[in-house]
Simulated scan of single mutants.
Amino acid sequence: MNRLAEQIVQFANRHSVTSLFTFPPDGGNGHPDHVAISLATTMAYRSGLCNTVSSLYYTLSPAMAADGRSPDLTVDVAKHWTVKAAALRAHDSQKYAIVRYFGELLDEAREDRRFEHFVIEN
Rank of each mutant, 00 (worst) to 15 (best):
L39D: 14
A78W: 01
F11E: 12
Q10N: 12
N122W: 13
R3H: 12
N29M: 11
S16M: 12
D72T: 02
Q94V: 09
R89F: 10
W81P: 11
L105N: 01
G28S: 04
A78N: 01
P24M: 05
A87L: 14
T74P: 09
R114V: 08
S38W: 02
R110L: 11
V99L: 12
R110M: 10
S16K: 07
I98M: 03
P25C: 06
L105G: 04
H15F: 13
R114F: 10
R14Y: 14
G28Y: 03
V9D: 02
M64F: 05
R89N: 07
H117M: 09
Y45S: 05
D33N: 12
I37C: 11
F11T: 15
N122A: 14
A86N: 03
A109Q: 00
A12G: 08
H80K: 05
A97K: 05
N122D: 15
S54Q: 07
I120L: 15
G68R: 00
Y57D: 04
Y96L: 15
F118Q: 01
V99C: 09
A12V: 13
A40H: 02
V83Q: 06
L39W: 09
Q10E: 15
A85I: 05
R114D: 06
I120F: 13
S54A: 07
D112F: 08
R89L: 13
A5D: 01
A40S: 10
L56T: 01
N122Q: 13
S61W: 00
L4V: 15
T18H: 10
F11M: 11
V35E: 04
N13C: 07
E116L: 06
D72R: 00
D33P: 15
F115I: 14
V119M: 04
E108N: 06
M1V: 15
E6G: 14
P24K: 00
E121P: 13
A85F: 03
T41E: 03
E111T: 10
H15N: 13
S19N: 14
V53H: 00
Q7G: 14
E111V: 12
A86Y: 03
L88K: 00
R89D: 12
A85Y: 01
G68Y: 01
H34M: 07
Q7T: 12
R100Q: 12
Q94A: 10
K84L: 04
D26I: 06
I120P: 07
R114S: 05
L49F: 12
H34Q: 04
T74K: 01
T18A: 13
C50T: 05
H34T: 06
T41V: 11
T18L: 09
M1Q: 08
Y101R: 09
V83S: 09
E104Q: 08
V83W: 06
G103K: 00
T82Q: 06
Y45P: 10
P71Y: 02
L60P: 10
G27Q: 05
G28T: 04
R114L: 03
R3P: 15
R14Q: 14
A44V: 08
R3W: 09
S93W: 08
I37Y: 04
R110T: 11
S19M: 12
G27E: 07
A86G: 07
A65L: 07
A63E: 04
Y96W: 12
V9C: 07
F115H: 06
